[in-house]
Design a protein around this nucleic acid. Structure first.
Lengths: 230, 230
DNA sequence: GATTACTGTTACAGATATGTGACAGCGGGT
DNA sequence: ACCCGCTGTCACATATCTGTAACAGTAATC
């Protein structure tokens, strides 16, 4: 199971700690932010899979933050669970209407939090845009997880698939080995950069002689995916 | 927007009336039942789009009814919102685990009820057409609850049937184990993801060598149901 | 042409994902 | 109370993937 990153936005450090401990025991990665500004930085930087958002925040209120996040295209897909202090009917309504995917009233048990969190994560669509990518005679369909060309289907392993998906949505630009490690493997891996070379080789092999020219070596810099030669 | 039918199952007539008035003002059609038996009759007869179920009922408890409904193939697709009297953590958990799609603690405002109800209805699949599904030489008829191929009838267990039904109405798309748990078992179960593997195995076995190729493993991603190979 | 720095290619062992059969518990039906 | 089918989990077998290392090949530089 891929590791999920949860961002906790709350100015009560006691809550933050409790939640962090519970979630990390369950195998999630936790980030913490005490105000809207810090939250925004982390969201842009780390792209969490879910946000636990306190209703009350210093400065901007949680609900305002939720509303803003849901309006922004780049963050709209991230599900939000609201933490409300009391059972106030209007809060629940506002929370749900503001774009939060669920809410929990404090105090809550870790067990309940986990249950709601899992349910929300499961409902949310797995990352990535759902439209098919077409480049240089290749078609990659994220929904069916298939790659095909005029000559038929291609057989790709998981890493090859992720790599091709990244390349097809980032054409005509050189990426260094370390950038590729970040983008294709994830931000927190430490692997030998030569690993990238090997997977490039595997991907080229899988693409076959008809399409392996799409992956171009840029000596001293990295690799580029492009329909144009050279 | 097509008219939605809501079934309210509660033995407190005051609640029933209040909810009915609120929902009808919002354009929904309401049915009322005071006990599990009456509820069952109405469910079979009227096929409501959503059920509001009280936690406490004379005779069978609401939670038991929810569990039974979710196990029955013909009613499993109907979302359920639980009404609980108090905020008791364990109730919430049990409610979610029993198959309810959401819960509301009494007392609640009509406004909140509407918000939750809309959210649940939005999540639930609109499909539910009773027409037969035909894919890759297989025919699944929801009315007679039978699956057949040119070689004869197939023997499927309940879970296998639900799984096949889901797959046949969602072809050519990869679903993760987690998504399958969500779709085939219900939104709020926690089960080991490997359980999916086992049921996939059982379904493949039931499909037999003629059709087991329809279920395709996508390594690292999940499973896909498709008449096309690879 | 020789040297050097890079990159391509292959092999392989360890890691991970999936397939498969067995089993105990549960609940429904008799 | 009993039986029987279904379910979820486990343990083990198998298949596939992955990262690293070693070596071969290639391009740049002098």
């Amino acid at each position: 199971m891929p590791e999920k990153t949860i961002l906790i936005v709350d100015d009560e450090s006691a809550i933050c700690e409790m939640v962090t401990v519970a979630l990390e025991m369950a195998g999630y990665v936790c980030l913490q932010a005490a105000d809207a500004k810090a939250a925004h930085t982390l969201i842009v930087d780390k792209r969490p899979d879910l946000i636990l958002l306190d209703w009350m925040l210093p400065g901007t209120s949680g609900i305002e933050l939720a509303r803003r996040l849901k309006k922004d295209d780049t963050t709209a897909a991230i599900p939000i669970i609201m933490l409300t202090a009391k059972v106030e009917e209007d809060n629940k309504i506002l929370g749900l209407e503001s774009g939060a995917d669920d809410y929990i009233t404090k105090p809550f048990s870790p067990r309940e939090l986990l249950a709601r969190l899992k349910a929300v994560l499961r409902r949310s669509t797995p990352a990535g845009v759902d439209s098919a990518l077409e480049v240089g005679g290749l078609t990659l369909d994220p929904l069916s997880h298939r790659v095909s060309s005029q000559f038929g289907q291609l057989e790709l392993g998981p890493t090859e698939y992720r790599m091709l998906q990244f390349f097809m949505s980032h054409q005509d630009r050189v990426y260094s080995r370390s950038q590729l490690l970040d983008q294709v493997w994830g931000a927190n891996v430490y692997l030998d950069e030569r690993t990238v070379d090997v997977h490039i080789r595997r991907l080229r092999k899988a693409l076959g002689t008809h399409h392996d020219h799409l992956i171009q070596t840029v000596r001293g810099a990295g690799y580029r995916f492009s329909a144009d030669p050279g």
